[in-house]
C-alpha cells in the first residue's frame, strides 16, 4: 500500500518535471526591461557588471536595508544566544571529551586564512567588473573566520573590534549615500566620481568604494553571527 503510494508520488513528480522540461525553451532575446538595463548601465554608470550596477546604485537604498536586516540578525542572535565568552567559562575546561585539533589542521588553517582573505578582497574589488561584489566577498571573509574557529575552537573573536569596524563601515556607507545626494542625482548615486575608462580597475564612479564598505560590513556581521553560534 505504502509502496504503491510512493510510486504514485514519484510518478506524479516525474510527470510534473517532465512537462516543465519538455515545454522549456531558451529565451533568445532579453525581456524589454532587462534589455533596457543591459544597455543603460554600461553607458550611464560605466560598470560592465549590470547586477552590481543595479544593486549598488539604482537600488542602493534597498541594499542598505538588506545590510540593516543582517545587522538585526546579529543583534538578535546576541540577545537570544547571549555572550558566548561568558558561557564558555561556565563549562569546565578539563572535561576530557574535547580532542584538540592536530598540528596539521592548525597550520593548514593558518596557511589558508590569508589566501581566502586575498580571494575575498579580489571578489570585492572586482564587483563592478565581473561576478562578485560586497555581499559575496563579505561572505567569503566570514568563511575564513569560520575556518579559524573550526581549526582552533579556543580562538577568541574580538567582538569589540568587529563591532566598531562594522559600525564605521555602515556610517561611511550612509555618508557616501548622502554625498551622492549632494554631488550627483540621488542617494548612493555612483556618478559623483568620474566614471573612468570602461572596464578598468578604477572605474564605474563610486561603485568600488561602496562595494568595499559593503564587504567590510557584511564580513564583520557574518563573522559575529558565526561566532554567536559557537556557543
Amino acid at each position: 500500500m505504502r509502496r504503491a503510494f510512493n510510486t504514485l508520488v514519484v510518478a506524479l513528480f516525474a510527470l510534473l518535471f517532465a512537462s516543465i522540461a519538455v515545454t522549456y525553451t531558451e529565451q533568445q532575446t532579453l525581456p524589454q526591461l532587462a534589455a533596457g538595463y543591459v544597455k543603460l548601465i554600461p553607458e550611464e554608470l560605466g560598470a560592465p557588471n549590470v547586477i552590481t550596477g543595479i544593486l549598488l546604485t539604482y537600488r542602493g537604498f534597498d541594499t542598505l536595508g538588506e545590510v540593516a536586516v543582517l545587522f538585526m540578525v546579529a543583534a538578535g542572535l546576541g540577545l537570544v544566544l547571549g555572550d558566548s565568552t561568558r558561557r564558555r567559562d561556565a563549562v569546565p575546561a578539563e572535561s576530557g571529551a574535547i580532542v584538540p585539533s592536530t598540528e596539521l589542521v592548525r597550520n593548514g588553517a593558518a596557511i589558508l586564512f590569508p589566501l581566502i582573505s586575498i580571494f575575498a578582497a579580489y571578489i570585492i574589488m572586482n564587483g563592478h567588473l565581473s561576478a562578485g561584489g560586497g555581499f559575496q566577498g563579505g561572505a567569503i571573509i566570514a568563511s575564513s573566520v569560520m575556518l579559524l574557529l573550526l581549526a582552533n575552537p579556543e580562538y577568541l573573536v574580538d567582538h569589540d573590534f568587529l563591532g566598531v569596524t562594522e559600525s564605521l563601515a555602515g556610517v561611511l556607507y550612509v555618508l557616501t549615500g548622502i554625498a551622492g545626494l549632494i554631488f550627483a542625482g540621488g542617494f548612493l548615486d555612483s556618478r559623483m566620481l568620474p566614471l573612468g575608462q570602461f572596464g578598468a580597475f578604477f572605474s564605474a564612479g563610486a561603485i568600488p568604494i561602496i562595494s568595499v564598505l559593503l564587504g567590510i560590513k557584511v564580513g564583520c556581521e557574518l563573522s559575529v553571527i558565526i561566532d554567536r553560534f559557537r556557543g
Partner: peptide, 20 residues
C-alpha cells in the same frame, strides 16, 4: 595548490573526528 592544501587536511580532520 588549493586542492593539494585543502583535500588531505580536511580528510585528515574528518578521519580523526570519526576516530574520536
Amino acid at each position: 595548490y588549493f586542492v593539494l592544501l585543502t583535500n588531505p587536511i580536511s580528510s585528515h580532520a574528518l578521519g580523526r573526528a570519526a576516530h574520536a
